[in-house]
Amino acid sequence: MRKHMGRTACLIISMLLLLSGCGGEGSTGASEEFFAMDTYMRITVYGDDAEEMAEEAKDEIERIEALLSITGESEIAVINAEGEGDVSDETRGVLERAIEIGKLTEGAFDITIYPVVDAWGFFSGDYRVPDEEEIGELISHTGIENISISDDNSVTFAQQGMGIDLGGIGKGYAGQRVHDLLADYGVSSALMELGGNVCLLGAKPDGSLWRVGIMSPFDDSERIGVIEAEDVSIVTSGGYQRYFMEDGVVYHHIIDPSTGFPADNGLASVTVVCSDGLLADALSTALFVMGEDGACSFWKENGGFEMLLVTDDERIIVSSGVADFFQPEDGYITEVVSR
């Protein structure tokens, strides 16, 4: 009789275990969806206290936005308005990284391009095509060499009419900060979707790799493929993300700092995979500006990231470190670039 009861108990436990697995994920997540940093964001946290952690993540992003935004009373907005200002250690750190990446990319990433982007109307939404004379005048007030940061965190511009925009790294930095914050709290699985920037904390709750689709720059209802990854940021930049048309010509938002006009170097989009979210964000813009040859040379000369380039003629070029983790959609053929 006792033996029979034991068997029945085993069976009931087995059934419960099986039924508990029927939910698919095996772990529930909590999401926060909100507008911040001029985009739409969703943060999903898995594990214990997921709801509280997702709220913490949202608060952290709003805190960073208040620090780095070009609007409101942020430290950056004050510097742009006054031509100088004091910054916190955190803002100083972000500015120094931006300047460092600007030097590394030989100006392809340039936070001082702000007045030129503003003239095109990409901040206000009042789009217009500035003439070459205006662009020439504005571009003479750019260049990271014209920013000075003193030991007491005072930032000054060498010329009048300058401005800085951290939009090219703000979301990447925010994603990385949230990643690190959640990791410090002991969260082992989270997905941050910050307006097209994807930041992954750990692997999925079931231990498998996250599957991140890469948007097609040619059709907004299609993807060019999927990257499987864990604990990295995956950032895509492309002219298709924000643009306007005038007299039948498309003008997109990624301005080439060397010309002041939308970058037109043969690339439709650039995806960067990197464990440093800020670097991923900055490089996705910089490589887009460099074009195919420049981006491939830069990747060969510098380590620490992987890339996926989509050319205007619909070729996909992937760096060797991510090639095995990229599954292209049917119809796309990839070329692998190796060091």
């Binding site: 097209g196 890469i214 993807r223 990257i227």
Partner: peptide, 13 residues
């Protein structure tokens, strides 16, 4: 529908 991806990079600016 069980989507085959967890997120999409580059879908929104």
């Amino acid at each position: 529908k069980n989507d085959d991806v967890d997120a999409v990079s580059g879908d929104v600016k």
